[in-house]
Computed example of a mutant assay.
Amino acid sequence: MRELNGRVAVVTGAGSGIGRALAARFAAEGMAVAIADIEAGPLEETRAELAAAGAKVFAEVVDVGDEAAVRAFADRVFDAFGAVHLLCNNAGVFTGGQMWTRPVADFEWTFRVNTWGVLHGVQAFVPRMIEQGTEGHVVNTASVAGLFGAPFSGAYTMSKFATYAATECLAHEFAVSGVKLRASVLCPGGVATGIAAAERNRPAALAAERTPDQDFIDQVIAGAVTGGIAPADVADAVVRAVREERFLILTHDSYRPGLTARAEDLAAGRLPGLPDFESRD
């Protein structure tokens, strides 16, 4: 989908970080933008910034883990703009720790947002995007942790591997069905976002006591995002990928050789090695 001007984009997790940068980048391309986030204050900041820049914007507080809420959001977006051409299922959370010390609640929360949130977005928006008969694109935000397994992040990594797999399946389904939609999976490395503080949005029903292993990996993640690339750089990469119909969007070129090494390790039956997750390249 090369032409973005005059079309409509949807971005979840748009209150901050990559989501806010995506919304701003799409608006700069002349797109109308529908944005959602679970935090009302940051979402309103994004809406105000876009509106001040002259963009057509619709904003709504949405919990992407709630299927009914996402479907209702989709209804209102189509009512507001009449069509959707670019869907970015971007909302995501992180919690870490060893798989044998952290409770099932960690896994329920991360899958609810990172995986079910993507599925809810696809099911709420894609059928009507297909019915439009126009070109369109779906971008699902996974992570390099959706390509490379890592210690101390089982819940997050499992959810992001699932998001990667879902997007690959979706892309193949688009291709064999002959529809005019394409799909990309965004796999960021270190990006300067607030994901290290994602626990602020954890539902009380899924709360869990902290453990030392969780504290350790949280410090690692905080360091990685503090020195990470700007979210605006990620948004630029997404726009290029949509125009080029590229499936995999990496934010750091240093991960590309690791994908080859990973494939070779797997083909030989070896446990794949770990890439430099804190790479700045």
Rank of each mutant, 00 (worst) to 15 (best):
V138A: 08
A150V: 02
A155I: 00
G117I: 00
T141F: 05
Q123V: 07
T167N: 11
A124Y: 12
E131F: 11
G178K: 07
E168S: 11
A165T: 00
K180Y: 13
M129L: 15
Q132V: 00
H172C: 08
G154F: 10
T141Q: 07
A145H: 12
A150M: 04
Q132H: 04
F148E: 08
Y164S: 06
T163H: 06
V138T: 04
L119T: 03
G146F: 09
R182E: 14
V138E: 12
E135G: 12
A142Q: 04
L170E: 11
N140K: 00
G146Q: 10
M158Q: 04
A155C: 03
V118D: 02
R182H: 14
T157W: 05
T115C: 08
A155M: 00
G136V: 13
G149T: 08
G121A: 05
V139D: 07
V144W: 06
C169M: 08
T141L: 07
A155G: 02
T134L: 15
G121S: 06
E131Q: 14
F174I: 11
R112Y: 05
V126I: 12
R112K: 09
F174S: 12
V118L: 06
V122M: 09
T157C: 14
E168N: 07
V185F: 07
V185T: 00
V139R: 01
Q123M: 07
E135Y: 10
A166K: 02
G136H: 11
N140A: 07
E135L: 13
V144Y: 06
A175N: 12
L147M: 01
G121T: 05
P127A: 14
F152P: 05
E131H: 10
T134D: 15
A150W: 00
A142I: 06
V126L: 13
G136I: 12
P127I: 15
E173H: 10
M158A: 11
V118E: 03
M129Y: 08
C169K: 03
H137M: 07
G133W: 11
T157E: 09
W116N: 03
F125V: 04
L147A: 01
V122L: 13
V139G: 05
N140S: 09
A142H: 03
H137F: 06
R112A: 13
P127G: 09
K180G: 14
N140W: 01
F161C: 03
G146P: 09
T157M: 04
N114W: 04
A124I: 00
G178S: 11
Y156E: 05
A162T: 11
Y156K: 00
V118G: 02
W116C: 04
